[in-house]
Lab assay of single mutants.
Amino acid sequence: MSGNGNAAATAEENSPKMRVIRVGTRKSQLARIQTDSVVATLKASYPGLQFEIIAMSTTGDKILDTALSKIGEKSLFTKELEHALEKNEVDLVVHSLKDLPTVLPPGFTIGAICKRENPHDAVVFHPKFVGKTLETLPEKSVVGTSSLRRAAQLQRKFPHLEFRSIRGNLNTRLRKLDEQQEFSAIILATAGLQRMGWHNRVGQILHPEECMYAVGQGALGVEVRAKDQDILDLVGVLHDPETLLRCIAERAFLRHLEGGCSVPVAVHTAMKDGQLYLTGGVWSLDGSDSIQETMQATIHVPAQHEDGPEDDPQLVGITARNIPRGPQLAAQNLGISLANLLLSKGAKNILDVARQLNDAH
């Protein structure tokens, strides 16, 4: 009898209710805020589980004197976190989706994509230029951005401005803007500013005609071990179906173009009346040469937790077992079709030249 009692006690200790789920994140304040929001949602869904947040620095956090596009290494903000995932030191990792490459290392998958916040870019102005827009900034004003995508589009749109690289986390960039006289304004992701509670610093939100956004911008991705079915089931509740389908289309477009950090590629997606609209573009580094096109596809946005595919093969690095396969494939095909259209119009040449120029500098 006593033996059975011990077995029952052991089973209770090993039951999922007692389990601590370890969540990996970057150390920056924004990353911690984003991770806290994901953990809060998981806690609400699984009140019996405990969650421990483990923060670590990544290569991208450490190399702050070089433009991201020049470092010449993929997975700048993800490699150390993936290493911890691989060694079973954490069970899942919360990322900004735009930091996750469209091809993940073997053994990993994006197990959830959370509801997207505003994906557009924002302009934050130096205190002396508050009330201005990019259009009304004085001639030769210097605007800071760490992104080739932003610089290429904005140089084309605002030729009277000069664009220079600015690195560091959000706090560091804002301090550089406010305390030094080098920059009249800087460009940042609206979602990051909003998550930090800095709505009052948003001086201008850039519309798609001015600057399309990065693939996955404004959404959070939760990376897990691809074979860890328990954790895949656990994080599945975080999937937002519309965000998922938009981001599958965007990531398929980028992957098929073979774009990345070192080339200016941008997108804009919208879901309306059962249609998914995808606009994508590529630019030369100075913005003088560009190709942009829009395509659409009829896609039914499923309700969360309709029964999805059981075999769960990944699409552009994403596993969404609780979302039907048909809409996911339709979104992926839309991204591939748009990429093929741009490639047929000469996108590869623009991107190759951009890559060579970026590598040469």
Rank of each mutant, 00 (worst) to 15 (best):
E223H: 06
R355S: 15
K348G: 13
R164P: 07
T58S: 10
N333H: 14
A189F: 01
G24I: 04
Q180Y: 11
I350T: 01
L137A: 06
K98T: 01
T78Q: 09
P138V: 09
H305D: 14
L177P: 01
S75Q: 09
Q50M: 15
H300N: 12
E86I: 13
L342P: 01
K87Q: 14
D65Y: 10
L42V: 07
H95M: 06
E52T: 11
T41L: 09
Q204T: 01
K132P: 12
I113A: 09
Q180P: 09
L342S: 08
G72V: 09
P119R: 04
E258N: 01
L285I: 09
D233V: 07
S141A: 13
G192E: 05
R173S: 01
A152G: 09
H256W: 15
P119K: 04
Q314P: 11
V39E: 07
V38T: 12
K140F: 10
S165F: 07
L234F: 07
H239F: 01
S290Y: 12
H126K: 13
T35A: 11
A185T: 14
S69F: 08
I33A: 14
V301Y: 09
P138D: 10
Q332L: 08
R246I: 06
M295V: 13
T294E: 01
H300V: 14
M271F: 13
V353F: 01
D307G: 15
Q229S: 03
G60L: 01
T298R: 13
T298Y: 10
I323Q: 15
A339R: 04
V282G: 07
T25P: 01
I187K: 01
R195G: 04
K176E: 08
N358P: 15
V235I: 03
E258P: 06
R167F: 05
C247G: 06
R246V: 13
D121A: 01
V263K: 15
L177W: 01
L170G: 12
L188I: 03
L100Y: 12
T136A: 08
T109L: 05
T145G: 06
G218H: 01
E209Y: 14
M56D: 14
H256C: 12
I110L: 09
R201K: 09
L341T: 14
P302K: 05
G131E: 09
G287E: 01
T102I: 13
P302D: 12
K176G: 07
L276Q: 04
L232V: 14
V301A: 12
D240A: 08
V301I: 13
A67G: 09
I21M: 13
G111H: 01
L30Q: 01
F163R: 09
A189N: 03
E139Q: 15
A191I: 01
Q204A: 04
I33P: 01
R355M: 15
R116G: 06
V39I: 06
A347Y: 15
A214K: 01
G111C: 01
A219S: 09
D273R: 14
L68P: 08
A122H: 04
T133F: 05
Q34I: 06
Q34A: 08
G197M: 01
E73V: 09
E223F: 01
D312H: 13
S262V: 09
G72L: 07
P327H: 12
V130N: 12
E242D: 12
Q328S: 15
R225N: 04
L351K: 01
P101E: 08
G107K: 07
A44T: 12
A189C: 10
F253T: 04
A249N: 01
V20W: 08
G281I: 01
M295Y: 15
I323P: 01
L64T: 12
I323C: 11
K348M: 05
Q229R: 12
L92K: 03
L161G: 04
R150S: 04
T190C: 14
D289R: 09
P105A: 11
L244C: 12
W198K: 11
V353C: 01
H207N: 05
L188G: 09
G24A: 09
K227V: 01
R32E: 07
G144T: 09
T279K: 04
N171W: 14
K74E: 01
Q332N: 06
K348I: 15
V235G: 04
K70R: 08
A330T: 10
A270T: 07
S37N: 14
H83M: 12
T145H: 04
E250I: 01
A331L: 01
F108I: 14
L85F: 04
A320Y: 01
T298H: 08
V202W: 05
T145Q: 04
Q50C: 01
N349M: 11
P47S: 11
V282A: 09
E80T: 11
G326L: 05
T102S: 13
G72D: 07
T25Y: 01
F253A: 03
Q332K: 15
Q194A: 13
L315K: 07
D230S: 13
A249W: 01
G144A: 11
Q328H: 11
R251Y: 01
C114D: 10
T269G: 01
T243F: 01
N340C: 01
G192R: 01
P47V: 11
L104R: 07
A152W: 10
I113V: 01
A152I: 12
K70W: 09
R167V: 08
Q204W: 01
Q155E: 10
L315G: 05
L177Y: 01
L177R: 04
A84M: 14
G346K: 01
E135G: 09
D352I: 01
K79W: 11
L92H: 05
T41H: 12
L193E: 01
G72P: 13
G111T: 03
V93N: 08
P127G: 07
H83Q: 13
L315F: 15
S184G: 09
Y213P: 08
F163Y: 10
S344D: 15
E80L: 06
P159L: 10
D240F: 10
L329I: 12
L134F: 07
V143L: 11
D233H: 13
G107W: 15
P208C: 03
Q155V: 10
A55H: 12
A214G: 08
A354I: 01
L100E: 13
G168C: 01
V38R: 03
L329P: 01
A55N: 07
V222L: 14
E179A: 14
V103K: 13
S37M: 14
R164M: 12
A31P: 01
G131C: 07
A297Y: 04
K70E: 09
D178V: 10
I110T: 05
Y277W: 01
Q204M: 01
A339T: 13
E179F: 07
L220S: 06
Q153P: 11
L351G: 01
S147I: 08
K62F: 07
L81M: 08
E182D: 09
K43P: 03
S165V: 09
A55V: 12
M212V: 04
L188K: 01
A226W: 15
H126M: 08
R150K: 03
P264E: 05
A152R: 11
L285S: 01
P313A: 14
A84V: 07
A330Y: 01
R19S: 08
L177V: 12
L315R: 04
C114S: 12
R251A: 01
V39L: 09
S96V: 01
T66F: 09
A303R: 13
I323G: 04
V316T: 03
F51A: 07
L220F: 06
Y213L: 03
D359W: 13
L137W: 01
N322G: 01
V38N: 04
F77H: 01
Q155M: 11
V353K: 01
D99P: 05
Y277C: 08
K70C: 08
L338P: 09
E258S: 07
R325T: 08
A55Q: 10
K79T: 09
L100T: 06
H207I: 07
S344V: 06
L177Q: 05
L245P: 01
G48T: 12
N333T: 01
A303G: 04
R32D: 05
V316F: 13
A55C: 08
A67I: 15
R195A: 04
V263W: 01
G48P: 05
Q304T: 07
R225G: 01
R175E: 06
I186Y: 03
L97H: 01
N169F: 05
V316K: 01
D91R: 04
G48A: 13
T279Q: 08
L161Y: 11
V123L: 11
E242N: 01
P127F: 10
A40R: 07
T109Q: 07
Q328K: 13
V235P: 01
Q29M: 13
V38G: 01
A297L: 05
L64V: 05
A112T: 09
S165N: 10
E258K: 14
E82L: 08
L341R: 08
T109E: 03
